[in-house]
Design a protein around this nucleic acid. Sequence first.
DNA 1: AATGAATGAGATTTCATTCAT
DNA 2: TATGAATGAAATCTCATTCAT
Lengths: 209, 209, 209, 209
Amino acid sequence: MSLAPKRANNRNDALLDAAADLFATKGFRETTMRDIAKAVGMLPGSIYYHHGSKDDLLLAVYESGVERFLREFSEAQQQETSPLERLKRVMAMHVAAITRDDAYVRVLNRVVPDQVPKHTGSLIALREQYEQCFCELVDNLPLAPWVDRTLLRLMILGAANHAQFWFNPNGRQSAEDVGQNFARFLLESVTQAPPPTSRVIASHKRHGK
Amino acid sequence: MSLAPKRANNRNDALLDAAADLFATKGFRETTMRDIAKAVGMLPGSIYYHHGSKDDLLLAVYESGVERFLREFSEAQQQETSPLERLKRVMAMHVAAITRDDAYVRVLNRVVPDQVPKHTGSLIALREQYEQCFCELVDNLPLAPWVDRTLLRLMILGAANHAQFWFNPNGRQSAEDVGQNFARFLLESVTQAPPPTSRVIASHKRHGK
Amino acid sequence: MSLAPKRANNRNDALLDAAADLFATKGFRETTMRDIAKAVGMLPGSIYYHHGSKDDLLLAVYESGVERFLREFSEAQQQETSPLERLKRVMAMHVAAITRDDAYVRVLNRVVPDQVPKHTGSLIALREQYEQCFCELVDNLPLAPWVDRTLLRLMILGAANHAQFWFNPNGRQSAEDVGQNFARFLLESVTQAPPPTSRVIASHKRHGK
Amino acid sequence: MSLAPKRANNRNDALLDAAADLFATKGFRETTMRDIAKAVGMLPGSIYYHHGSKDDLLLAVYESGVERFLREFSEAQQQETSPLERLKRVMAMHVAAITRDDAYVRVLNRVVPDQVPKHTGSLIALREQYEQCFCELVDNLPLAPWVDRTLLRLMILGAANHAQFWFNPNGRQSAEDVGQNFARFLLESVTQAPPPTSRVIASHKRHGK
DNA sequence: AATGAATGAGATTTCATTCAT
DNA sequence: TATGAATGAAATCTCATTCAT
């Protein structure tokens, strides 16, 4: 029931895949309709049968990207019950998603909404949907009272998104490792074991693992 | 008598300022030579008296941006002697630099080297110079043995750079506050006051403030 | 039924014709893409659908020119069996080709390879193909032993090519006449049918030297 | 009396030299005012103190080129009294002049008058002056009655001018040799000892050798 | 669904030339 | 005499888009 109709237009899927890949890798302005057409084996004019404009094409990719991210996000979240563990899991997923060869999510962080005049508003709204996930996540964290939760959320996002610029899939750490470490840096403090007892949480942590 | 004659070419300075501003705000590809020319009150062709190409112009801005950043960085670093305090100070400076209306530094994080084919190599080298600063800084930090310093450095960079996308200079916190907080999140752990004594560092901290 | 569909792209032929004509008549640098576009009733940008750059366009014209010349050359050569007669026929053809309103061959002598940086090498190679024809032709000539065949070949080429600058199709002699005469000048000697003893001078010369 | 005033403006001489060299070597349209200025160590604007425009500059070079050629031509001519020897001498001089590193004469054959709209007429007139020399020369030649003197003149010019494209100063023959040979090809006939009677001239030839 | 051929607006760049100093 | 700075017109080229087929 759900498969047949969707698979009718699998040229369109290939088109979106190619566009996502190029937008994520080279950038929006740097990718031409010709590039996309060539990647999928069509002529530039043919793209317009599927999508009204380059901006529309990006919007479609963006929507798909957010949708995928949201799905992964909620999956990740459901795997853990402790808020702290949830953060780790989500950050691991986030870095993984952003550095994966699946390009849809990468586009979200590579293409800035105001590069796409026709849809700036929609794109911002989509991004917000995407960032919104983290609000809840951070709000449920048992944090010290001095912590500004908004700022923490932004720090988490920034750290994870930045991975797109340096992460090497063949490096010594997996994307999951990176995400987990980022979470630990925040939750356990990176400074050298100060007064002994203070490490309780951290040691807990490690046992859990 | 010795300064004035040299400043016959302060149109070039204005040119660089305008270019930096537009590149940082709209992006490299999104900014046309016409835009820059109009902003500085020249004709597009006139720009080429000063810079051989759009790519060259960007390179000049980038170089200037790195130079400025390096200068501010070393100033910030010299203000503190404790490595921990240094980190705070530097992060505060970093967020401030990136969100300031001085556009040169912002360009460093807005324009990706491979958007500028002619100078990709040089730009990457410049970025490395810029990122290198943080190596030393992080290396001198007294960290728990489990901490991967490279990862920490990348997290710091990502968090600070990301501020360019959301920081509001009229918001309730200054850029300095943001930077300081980011540093604290890492150094003190954000989790809820666990075993009481562990907060020693933090209270120390607050006194310092 | 089988020809028509193929000739959907005869705009490209028209394009090449117009380019050849303008390049041959005005010169390469003196001809703008606008000129060509106007001559063929397109917009300048449209040319780029068919040819990637002005240099590419010239290369296409050049290739076609050499091809045409080679075809005519071999036809001319096959019409005669005596090497001497062959030279006459070929020179007649050569002058005719160069002064004809078919511009492709004219381009070969009007556009100097290093005016076209992108294809200098290819153009030189093409010219060589064109000049090579004459090697064989001259090599098969029964010449006096003192004659430097390379020099003779270059003289023939120079004489014929130069016709492009002065030949008037409405003048009293046809291009064929001109070519035939050029050949006779070389083969029969232009000096007055002279009293045998007249050759004294020549031998003098050689003594003098 | 004639030197001092002339040497006042030797910057101008350098300017003309540089322009002649570049025009002859790269071509008129291919040479920019910047190129010329750089070659002579001025800024582009400074050229306009000496010459009103690029076209004017070319005209000056052209005039100088014709003047030089005429001078050499008449010197060459005066060295011989026999018309036939004169032709040899002049052709030797011609090839030498055209392939020499003194660029003024080369410009005459590299730059086509209608590349210089402002002075097309003057340039044609100058060229005619230059070509006129050869009229007289050829008219005084004792030629067989079947020979079209105009055509012969044009052949001579074409052959000599073409040398600019292939002559190699380090090759096995000097420019003088080349010119002499060209003249001999015409005056002595290049064919091998042909059929007895009609070839009287030619057979003589071979005796001479 | 797709293509081939073009369009048209606008981008970067080039370059002869000008002009106050 | 010469220069530094700019101009302005025009050149080449790019690219999203259109449209008849």
